[in-house]
Design a protein around this nucleic acid. Structure first.
Ligand SMILES: [Mn+2]
Ligand SMILES: [Mn+2]
Ligand SMILES: [Mn+2]
Ligand SMILES: [Mn+2]
Lengths: 249, 249
DNA sequence: GTGAAGGATTAGACGAGTCTAACTGAAATA
DNA sequence: TATTTCAGTTAGACTCGTCTAATCCTTCAC
């Protein structure tokens, strides 16, 4: 049996790995899990003995297949919980993360199944992050890119927002930058400040309590914009069908 | 902040204390939490330093008011979770305990509030155990007694079943001895074997999937019967109104 | 009142997870 | 290539929760 601490390390390595590819550095892990580098070194040794990571001294670490499966398991728990809390217990989009972080290590497989089926096996969590399937196969790379890398004039759909920083999340929530929203990038200033216009073009499931659902122009600092990932608007059938499945509730 | 381990000890002491009154012996606690007596001694010292228990060497331990409040907090979490799992995630009556035991230490106060209000502030969990209120005041002693102490011929309502033993629970579930059911005690044999007749006299909320909801005579061994607590049938308004609020779902 | 018997405590050890301080190696710079 | 910088590792210590083995009360039977 793995401790919840180990699960957290594996999850951290997985995410870092998908963000910037292996190998993952000791300090990056340390930063992510909020521990000191020596602590991480020693945990990596443990994890290596258990066959969950491979490691080259002074270089970095990489998950084995087994380690990756564990990470996906934890991530599945985390994101299913987020989805459930938002959908069934009225959590807001930005409140969900901390709770899921605590619970993800303590639910049974039975609980996982029941939650998944209660929600109809959702594909993404409220932040737009993909929920790994029950098979725990690594999901295909997505087609999103950071908002900072969009060309001026493009219309894009908000796909994912990082769920790591509460303040960022509150900011985006108030700004109406939520998964599923379509925006147009009208300017990119020096230092990465991105100005967008748009907002929830229709009410997806009746959230949007602050009745300003319309056109609005706002500028996002680089730190924020970089944490938002978008995909191109898809013109599916003549009409613009954009925010399917990622409703704001 | 208290560890989940400490919470488990406090909960154990609380329950033992309500079962047989303080002081609670080291070995009783050890047995309940599944640790050895020396481990318990040392944890009791820690708990005493923290002001959560009072203790007399070689005698036993007792919760302080603060310790009792913590215990009630954990118990509230546990029982709310049990109720939620049964009501909203289709857990059966007997599956619920283990899951709640793991989660009870890891939910936030926010989660507690949302679950409680989603269920309409339930008063009892699916085993019939009272759910401590949000004020965490000790609940009044209940009016139940073990099935083994009922006089032959009495009609009683099943009030609570111990949630500690899975096998016992399965047994009772199959036997149709569930909270809210009315039975009549027809015999008490030597060694405490109790024979009852009865069963779910009406379907409370549509559970009772095995369509045998009628009169049935069965004998329960002492070990089982002793874990079932009952209260007298209340003749509320002429009609017998018995199984309110403890529905089987 | 004395002596078992048995529960409780002390003694000592251990693994997990964490830290700080000191050191080492690798990579970038000049 | 030699040097510097800084990330990564080693060393050593500490807390928490746990155990086994040994010892110490208390109590109950006689
Ligand atoms: Mn998340
Ligand atoms: Mn799982
Ligand atoms: Mn229970
Ligand atoms: Mn609480």
């Amino acid at each position: 049996m793995l401790s919840d601490v180990m699960e957290d390390y594996l999850k951290a390595i997985y995410v870092l790995q998908t963000e910037s590819g292996p190998p993952v550095s000791t300090s990056a892990i340390a930063e992510r899990v909020g521990k000191t580098p020596p602590t991480v070194t020693s945990m990596l040794e443990t994890l290596e003995e258990r066959g969950l990571v491979e490691r080259e001294k002074y270089k970095g670490a990489e998950l084995t297949e087994e380690g990756r499966t564990v990470a996906l398991e934890v991530l599945r728990h985390h994101r299913l919980l987020e989805a459930y809390l938002a959908e069934r217990l009225d959590y807001s989009w930005s409140e969900v993360h901390e709770e899921a972080d605590a619970l993800e290590h303590h639910i049974s497989e039975e609980f996982e199944r029941r939650v998944a089926s209660a929600l109809g096996d959702p594909a993404v969590d409220p932040h737009g992050d993909p929920i790994p399937g029950a098979d725990l196969e690594p999901p295909a790379d997505d087609d999103t890119r950071p908002l900072t890398e969009v060309a001026v004039g493009d219309r894009v759909v908000i796909a994912r927002v990082s769920d790591r920083d509460d303040e960022e999340l509150e900011y985006l929530d108030r700004a109406g930058i939520t998964p599923g929203t379509t925006v147009e990038v009208v300017d990119i200033a020096p230092f990465g400040m991105v100005t967008v216009v748009g907002g929830p073009d229709r009410e997806p499931h009746g959230s949007d309590a602050d009745g300003d659902g319309g056109e609005r122009e706002q500028s996002l600092p680089e730190a924020i914009a970089g944490a938002v990932r978008v995909r191109p608007v898809e013109e599916v059938n003549g009409a613009a069908a954009t925010d399917a499945g990622v409703g704001g509730a």
